[in-house]
Design a protein around this nucleic acid. Structure first.
Length: 465
RNA sequence: GUCCCCAUCGUCUAGCCUGGUCCAGGACACCGGACUUUCACUUCGGCAACAGGGGUUCAAAUCCCCUUGGGGACGCCA
């Protein structure tokens, strides 16, 4: 078995492409087959080397490794030409001198009169030869029905007279998509093609080409599209669509892979899969036929799940770049790991983790003005003063000791614990919501803890800094 | 317009092929309760769907047909 992913380097790797790659990868890896890459860069205008690099980088980040070197389609035009020449020789293709503008005009006319907009075969029997601006077209065989057994959608049949004489060689000397895919898949020995739904209409044309070459077509599997929340094709206006954007937003490749796989594929009620497990379990039989809506909330849930599963040291390393972006340098990976333990259940992405961890590094942290107004009253400050004294006297060595200090103070003042805890939380973090107080105190240590309390006591209601 | 594809909770889906075990199961989200010095986590519970209409059958979410709705394609883009 050989599967392939064949992106065109005209942009970044997007979510839909990533899932197509993932499905091909899963099928090959699960069956002990090969997964190869082919860069379809025959659009000389739009293809860019930088896009190729970005796509490879995205695939690597996702952990979808490929076999051998990527095949560059533009380097195989000689091969494509050979196959086209063969058709030309057999009378299965012909030169066409029609001007693009004329064809476009006919197309518009057909569309307006309610017909199918397609090439009228003007040059078909003219026996023309090469000329500047000329193209080579496929001479579609006599009407017949073309069908295949799609591994996802079941059997699909199309009447071949729905298909017109498609261009095989463009006037710039490059082969067209349909010709190049067929020649390449054929010569690369691809056995299974998983691609997006939007290629269903190309499949009968390609089957006709396989037949013209006297070859057996590979197996086709068309995966349904991924839609945005409004059920239209996923695009930028629905939010992030590029794989690399998700990396920047702090998503883990594991989470994205897991989410993308479950979008369309299922294995009973199971939701959580490692890449290895998915490969073992993956089957096209359990890929759905209907389009699915991309749901960021569920991705968040999966990402949060994997965040919680990640060892603290590793989580710290993963979060570090996001802290660096905030000009924060943690003293050590040990300290960072301790911090991670306190914030990892409070964020859904690495970006959020970095945000939640930020206060540890700000001395003192800026106080939320609304909370300060409410909590740093004379009574609040009195409480903080007493707390500072207690903590200076005997800095708690464990959670229990710390709790006793808070509890004792609350009892003495005859207030709820929150009345004591909240001003302290504000002083230490600048906010009213934070990790557990003892965890913070422990990480901050006596000096910074006292310092921050004193800074809060100095609060006078004026904007800080 | 023409052709192709699709249709179970708001969303992802199980079940459909091989009708009965489904007054339809799981997950996300949402809403309540518990836990709690905050926020979260966790946990318990709840809300919520077989698009509509015809058949076939003792029996249909499951098979067939139609309607409606949605998506895709119709390039010298891929």
């Amino acid at each position: 078995m050989i599967t392939r992913f064949a992106p065109s380097p005209t942009g970044h790797l997007h979510i839909g492409g990533a899932r197509t790659a993932l499905f091909n990868w899963l099928l090959a890896r699960g069956q002990g087959g090969q997964f190869v890459l082919r860069v379809e860069d025959t659009d000389s205008l739009r293809s860019k080397e930088e896009h190729t690099q970005a796509i490879l980088e995205a695939l690597t980040w996702l952990g979808l490794d490929w076999d051998g070197e990527p095949v560059i389609q533009s380097q195989r035009v000689d091969l494509h030409r050979q196959y086209i020449d063969q058709l030309l020789k057999n009378g299965q293709a012909y030169w066409c001198h029609c001007r693009p503008e004329d064809i476009e005009e006919k197309r518009q006319q057909a569309l307006q009169t309610g017909g199918k907009p397609r090439y009228d075969g003007h040059c078909r029997e003219l026996g023309l030869g090469p000329a500047p601006g000329a193209v080579i077209r496929f001479k579609s065989p006599p009407p017949r029905s073309v069908g295949w057994k799609d591994l996802i959608k079941g059997s699909i049949v199309v009447d071949s007279d729905e298909l017109d004489d498609l261009v095989l060689l463009k006037s710039d000397g490059f082969p067209t998509y349909n010709l190049a895919v067929v020649v390449d898949d054929l010569t690369m020995g691809v056995t299974h093609i998983i691609r997006g739904d939007d290629h269903v209409n190309n499949t009968p044309r390609q089957i006709l080409l396989y037949q013209a070459f006297g070859a057996t077509p590979p197996q086709f599997a068309h995966a349904p599209m991924i839609l945005g929340s409004d059920k239209t094709r996923l695009s930028k206006r629905h939010g992030a669509t590029s794989v690399m954007a998700y990396r920047e937003l702090g998503y883990l490749p594991r989470a994205l892979n897991n989410y993308l796989a479950r979008l369309g594929w299922s294995h009973g009620d199971q939701e959580i899969f490692s890449l290895e497990e998915m490969a073992k379990l993956f089957s096209l039989k359990h890929v759905g036929r209907a389009a699915s809506v991309f749901n960021p909330e569920k991705l968040n849930w999966l990402n949060a799940h994997y965040l919680k599963q990640t060892p603290l040291e590793e989580l710290g390393a993963l979060t570090l770049p996001y802290l660096t972006a905030k000009n924060i340098t943690p003293p050590s990976s040990e300290v960072l790991a301790k911090i991670m333990a306190t914030v990892r259940e409070r964020g859904k992405t690495l970006v959020e983790l970095a945000e939640k961890a930020e206060f540890y590094f700000l001395d003192p942290p800026p106080l939320d003005p609304i909370a300060a107004q409410k909590l740093l009253t004379p009574e609040g400050k009195a409480t903080l003063t007493e707390l500072a004294e207690e903590l200076t006297k005997a800095f708690p060595g464990d959670h229990q000791a710390f709790d006793q200090i808070i509890q004792a103070l609350a009892t003495r003042k005859m207030v709820k614990m929150g009345v004591v805890a909240q001003p302290l939380r504000l002083a230490l973090t600048g906010k009213t919501a934070s990790p557990g107080l003892y965890d913070i105190v422990e990480i901050l240590g006596p000096e910074k803890t006292i310092q921050r309390i004193k800074a809060a006591l100095a609060y006078d209601g004026q904007p800080q800094d």
